[in-house]
Amino acid sequence: MTASSVILWQRGQAMTEFVVSVGFIFLVLFIIVPTFGKILDMKFQNQQAARYVAWERTVWLRDMNSWGGNDNTGDFVISSNEFESVAMRSDSDLTNSLHNRFFNGQGRAEIKEISSSDVDGASGDTSALWAYNQSGKSMFQGVEVLNTNEQETPAIAYDVLDVLDAGLDVITAPIEFMLNVVGGDNTDLLQLDYNLKGYYSPRVRTSMNTGNAKGGGDGEWDRNDGSWGGGIEDAIFQNWDGRFTANSAILADGWNAQSVGYYQDRTDNFVPSTVFDNTLFDVLKAAASILEGGPSKSAIYKLDFGEMGVEPMPGEEAQPLDVSCDEGHCYYDE
């Protein structure tokens, strides 16, 4: 073998090595890296969706009996007045809202407005970013919301509250009986009335469409039995089912999801403003006023008891009063 033939042979070997090595490098750069980026983006959306489902249960009750039907749930109402209506969403409505806010109609450079129609059902295409590089088909298959039930709060403090509430029921039972005789109406006097459940730990599972990967998701991307596989994307699903599962948890007492009547009743449990709002106390006031010169002159007779106000600011018909300012001092126009 001459020197010139050795040089030519080495040149051919170098070219072969270059083509093979560059092929594998560019496969990683142009297919694997972008694909993993898309997968991580879907995983992030799945995590955000799980947090969203947990948080929404602090805003929306699932049904009127979400609190086990205690006495104060009788104050829950559905009303056209947003200040008096209980906020409710079923599990299916919440799942639809999740689809529309995180998966459907959410694409690159596309901002989707939040509206009440979110609960009507998933609408709109999924992100154009979620597409396989080789096949060009969608990577997204679907979303499931699991374990949506309200659970007992896993805390000793809530067990103590349960025992304390039961003890108060024994103490207040004879008091409530006497109040009912004279026309009183406070069936839950001194009840703590906490939601002893209120614990949610939903799981959200997003599934990739493995069948849309080049090769169907179950082949070999490298040489197998002397032939090339269907696509490099198959390698992703060799030991993975293409699912993301995110867990979240939240403790929701639900104060911000109740009616005005519920607030008043709950306040009245500990501020006995309505305990003395009955016929017997009116008679006692009238009798005591004689010692002060009669009802028209008596300070005792002017004592008045009723429901506690729970408005965050002075208002009329659930609307805040106007404010007037004078030399730096502001007042409500009453």
Rank of each mutant, 00 (worst) to 15 (best):
W221C: 10
W221Q: 10
D222S: 14
D222G: 10
D222H: 12
N224Y: 14
N224H: 13
G226Y: 09
S227H: 11
W228N: 09
W228D: 08
G229P: 07
G229L: 04
D234I: 01
D234M: 05
D234H: 05
A235H: 04
I236S: 02
F237Q: 05
Q238P: 00
Q238M: 09
N239Q: 11
G242V: 05
G242D: 09
G242I: 02
R243W: 08
F244Y: 14
T245C: 03
A246V: 04
A246P: 03
S248T: 02
A249K: 11
I250Y: 11
L251M: 14
A252R: 06
D253W: 07
G254R: 08
W255P: 00
W255K: 08
W255M: 12
N256Q: 11
S259M: 01
G261K: 06
Y263W: 14
Q264T: 06
Q264I: 13
Q264M: 10
R266H: 15
D268R: 12
D268I: 02
D268A: 15
N269I: 00
F270K: 02
F270R: 01
F270D: 03
V271A: 10
P272F: 04
V275A: 12
V275T: 13
F276S: 05
T279P: 00
T279R: 13
T279D: 15
T279E: 14
T279N: 11
L280F: 15
